[in-house]
């Protein structure tokens, strides 16, 4: 018994003596191990692109792991401000208030445009009265305190039937962008719609109701083309100027005002780590082929070059 106590005592002393407190190296795996890890957080819209590129990257660089968290653009920026992540996925540009907080914490970042999304307004395929809408008409339907309850409220020649509206909930960057572009103010929207954080719910909702209308990212329309009809949007008062979202119109920038750029924000301090540098270079290089596969629209060659230049100058610094 006393011998066992002795052995345990010695083991305990050894364990305590073997404990050292040390600073952690960014990129090291917490438990210990020989792989490097890049931390990515942020928008659910950008996640499919980053995940696709990360998976391809891990095949080539087998000692690097790139897990992705999905918490939304705003939370992603908060994590970037706190210095907890290397890359933030974002479906909107960083706000001035967020920039200031970065400065306060001594966090420098580089903004890289990586793809374009066209927010798509969709209706039921049997809807034969709407093929295009002006921004003013959309605003009339979606603005706060909207008086539109029936289709005939928008245009008297349309059916005298209740309109049902589906859209993203307010935690989403899609919601921020749509309300800003259509209603002129971030967060302003009619009380008369069914919000959902799950874009598949919106797709199912619109596909199941002849008198429904909804909006979401282009990826969700492109995966549901047979179930939904997309509406062309005219930035002017004239319906003849309406443009439907297609990869060509979104890339060319003629689909306005609902085209939006997607970004990644890379912490500059992390770029000194070779695995982060490799990953971002891969993202803007070979990885760009994954943008279309994820259902979004790839940048034009000139825009890719602009992003690459911004990245290389940040690395060189």
């Amino acid at each position: 018994m006393s011998r066992m106590r002795c052995v345990f005592g010695m083991l305990a002393v050894l364990a305590i003596a073997g404990c050292t407190v040390e600073d952690t190296t960014p990129g090291d795996v917490a438990g210990g191990g020989d792989v490097k890890r890049i931390m990515v957080d942020g928008s659910s819209t950008v996640e499919p692109i980053t995940s696709r590129i990360a998976e391809k990257f891990e095949v080539e660089f087998s000692d690097v792991q790139v897990p992705v968290k999905v918490t939304g653009t705003g939370t992603g920026f908060k994590e970037l401000i706190a210095g907890r992540i290397d890359i933030a996925n974002a479906s909107r540009p960083i706000k001035d208030s967020e920039k200031e907080e970065c400065q306060k914490n001594g966090i420098e970042f580089v903004e890289l445009k990586i793809a374009i999304d066209g927010l798509s307004v969709v209706v039921h395929p049997e809807n034969d009265w709407v093929t295009s809408l002006t921004v003013a008409q959309l605003k009339k339907i979606w603005e706060p305190g909207s008086t539109v309850t029936k289709w005939s409220d928008v245009d008297p020649s349309w059916p005298d039937h209740k309109i049902s509206l589906f859209g993203a909930g307010e935690e989403s960057g899609t919601f921020n962008y749509f309300t800003e572009a259509i209603n002129g103010k971030d967060g302003a929207i009619t009380e008369n719609y069914s919000p959902s954080g799950d874009d598949n719910v919106i797709a199912t909702g619109v596909a199941g109701d002849k008198y429904a209308m909804g909006f979401f990212g282009y990826a969700y329309y492109s995966r549901n083309k047979e179930k939904l009809k997309v509406v062309a949007v005219s930035p002017t008062e004239n319906l003849a100027d309406a443009v439907a979202p297609t990869p060509e119109t979104i890339e060319a920038g003629t689909y306005t005002p609902l085209s939006r750029p997607l970004f990644i924000y890379v912490k500059k301090a992390s770029l000194s780590r070779p695995e982060v540098e490799d990953f971002v270079r891969f993202y803007l290089g070979a990885g760009q082929a994954e943008v279309a596969a994820a259902g979004y629209v790839a940048l034009s060659a000139a825009e890719v070059e602009a992003s690459k230049a911004a990245f290389e100058s940040a690395v060189g610094k």
Binding site: G18, C19, V21, E22, D23, A30, G32, A82, G83, I85
Partner: peptide
């Protein structure tokens, strides 16, 4: 509050407990 400044307890070189 920042991960970049965080510490870890190194236990006999086998496992690192982050703090």
């Amino acid at each position: 509050s920042s991960a970049a400044k965080s510490k870890a307890i190194n236990l006999l070189g086998i496992v690192k407990i982050p703090l």
